[in-house]
């Protein structure tokens, strides 16, 4: 499913180029001198915790918010100057559900289609396709209010692609949606990417970030790392990750945290992830430390780091 870097480079270059972008709200710097680029046809993930500047960046890219400083190019148009042209060619799903709840599924699609100037005949066809795509076949006359989470999300995506845009901006599209629906939603995104659409998606779900072709980690308004999930795991991690199974994880966590050589100690269910500079020496040290507090280790292996490990390591 995931295409190679070479495929992506063969496409027509960059969809988004951002340089030196800064946004200040009074004394607060929401976005602090960030730079990144998005290739045409890729799914680009913007990953960061709430309040890290993800939505502010998207709103600036759409020309909804004036940047304090910096350059933005979207689909070869300058933003905010040429935002009008960009808007004709992009689809946007804001964080809040933004269809009309008192209109039916079909009425919502018809409204947004008309507003985008989709010709009537084409609009009828697209509406039918999108209703099927969203899994809403036969429910076109239902009020949007009565749809549950996953359907709403897919319908909102449908409304955003009605006019066949080249690039999609999705702001936390799967927040508050159940795992099955999230999976279905991502399958749709892959289909769209295969059709050549560029997708810029923000999320704070690490598992979703794994699905992106490339990622940027944003933290407190700064980009702390960019690259494909594989590259990030291989290059952005100083040290190795040890996964440890013990009989008393809480006690083990407390004791390992006292040692400064372990840059990161975190609990994942009943297992501990410990980031160490070098695995061989650390094994003995951990055995020793845990033995001293009476915790017995049943298993200890080196594992490839998860994106979460990388993210946490980068923001420390």
């Amino acid at each position: 499913m995931v295409r190679s870097m070479n495929d992506l480079m063969d496409d027509a270059g960059f969809a988004v180029i951002v340089e030196g972008l800064t946004k200040k709200f009074g004394d607060f710097t929401a976005v602090d001198d960030i730079a990144f680029h998005v290739l045409r046809g890729e799914i680009f993930g913007f990953l960061g915790p709430n309040g890290s500047g993800k939505t502010t960046t998207i709103r600036m890219l759409l020309g909804l918010l004036m940047p304090t400083e910096g350059q933005m190019t979207v689909l070869d148009f300058q933003v905010p100057g040429q935002a009008e042209q960009v808007r004709l060619r992009c689809g946007y799903m804001s964080q809040k559900f933004s269809l009309y709840e008192d209109l039916t599924v079909a009425e919502n699609l018809r409204f947004f289609g008309r507003v985008y100037g989709v010709p009537p005949r084409r609009l009828r066809r697209r509406s039918r396709e999108i209703i099927v795509m969203a899994g809403l076949a036969g429910r076109g006359n239902e009020l949007t209010r009565n749809l549950s989470g996953g359907w709403r999300q897919r319908l909102a995506l449908g409304a955003a692609i009605l006019h066949d845009p080249d690039i999609l901006f999705l702001d936390e599209p799967t927040a508050g949606v159940d795992p099955v629906s999230r999976r279905q939603f991502w399958d749709l995104l892959y289909t769209l990417a295969d059709q050549g659409k560029t997708i810029f998606v923000t999320t704070h779900y690490m598992d979703e970030a794994e699905n992106c072709h490339r990622l940027a980690f944003i933290h407190r308004g700064r980009i702390v790392a960019t690259g494909s999930p594989q590259t990030l795991k291989q290059t952005q991690m100083s040290g190795e990750v040890l996964e440890i199974e013990v009989d008393c994880p809480e006690e083990a966590l407390r004791s390992l945290k006292t040692d400064p050589t372990f840059t990161e100690v975190a609990l994942y269910g009943r297992r501990l992830h410990v980031v160490v500079p070098e695995a061989v020496g650390a094994r003995a040290q951990i055995q020793h430390l845990l033995g001293a507090v009476g915790v017995s280790v049943s298993r200890m292996v080196v594992i490839p780091p998860s994106l979460e490990d990388v993210f946490i390591a980068r923001v420390r």
């Binding site: 759409l62 808007r87 809040k96 933004s98 709840e101 947004f112 100037g117 409304a159």
Partner: peptide
Amino acid sequence: EWGTIEQLVVTPV
């Protein structure tokens, strides 16, 4: 209040 204005503003309206 609905938040739909955000969606309208990015359309050509």
